[in-house]
Structure formats: structure tokens, C-alpha cells
Design a binder for these strands. Sequence first.
DNA 1: GCCCTGACTGCTA
DNA 2: TTAGCAGCCAGGG
Length: 121
Amino acid sequence: MMTFFDRVYAVVRRIPSGRVASYGQVAALCEHPHAARTVGWALNGMPHALADPAHPDAIPWWRVIAKTGHISITGRDDAAGRQRQLMEAEGIAFTADGRVDLQRFRWQPVIADWPLPPAHE
DNA sequence: GCCCTGACTGCTA
DNA sequence: TTAGCAGCCAGGG
């Protein structure tokens, strides 16, 4: 059964390095435009191993930010700081007020070759 | 099966 | 322009 979470992970995995997507964008690609919060929750609950950038099948959760361009992690430790580091390492620049310029770095998926699995199953 | 939570959004004041 | 607030959806208790 392909759960909503699985779909979220599938979408996030397609975000290329050096690009970012908003929670709402990911939700929309999962065919649930209003489930942005659920996307955040899905990322929060993903398998620990897949959250590690060093993992071969890691889910690039750090490429997902709020629509306004700011990092909205509320997790314990300095998750937000790590997210910023990971993004900067990929060449994503931050503005003076600590936000990402979505005009420049927003991921624009090519729907034509969108291999997202079907909604049901 | 109901109620609560959450890494969001868009609208209103 | 900034701050609040209600709506949104899926999973866990």
C-alpha cells in the first residue's frame, strides 16, 4: 500500500541537488495541495537512516522549506542550522534575513516525465 | 472511531 | 508590513 508518506518521500527524492521545494509544492505533487502540514509531519517521521545525507538512499529533506523561503524546522537540537549547512553545501544561497531566494532556487519538476506512482493502490 | 498533533498556507485585521 | 487565526490532511493514542 502506497501511503501518503511514501508518496511524500518519493517526491522529495526527486528534488535535485541545488534546488528546493516548498511543503505545499510537495503536497501538491502528491495530489493533496492542502496537506503541506502533513508533508512536514511525514519528513519528521521518516526513518532515521534515510534522514542521513550520507545514506545512499537518503531522502533530501533539507531541500524542503516553507513557501516564504525560510527554514521552519522546530526539531530538537540544531536541525535548522544543519539544514542550512546542507543547502549551502549544494550551492543554495541565503538572503540577509536567513531565507532562500525561491525565485532562483525553486525546483520546477518536468511533469512530462513525472514517474510518480498512481494515487491509489 | 474520535480527538489531538504538526518541519504549512492563505486570508484578514 | 506584520501578526493572528482558521483550514487543511494523515497517523497515532
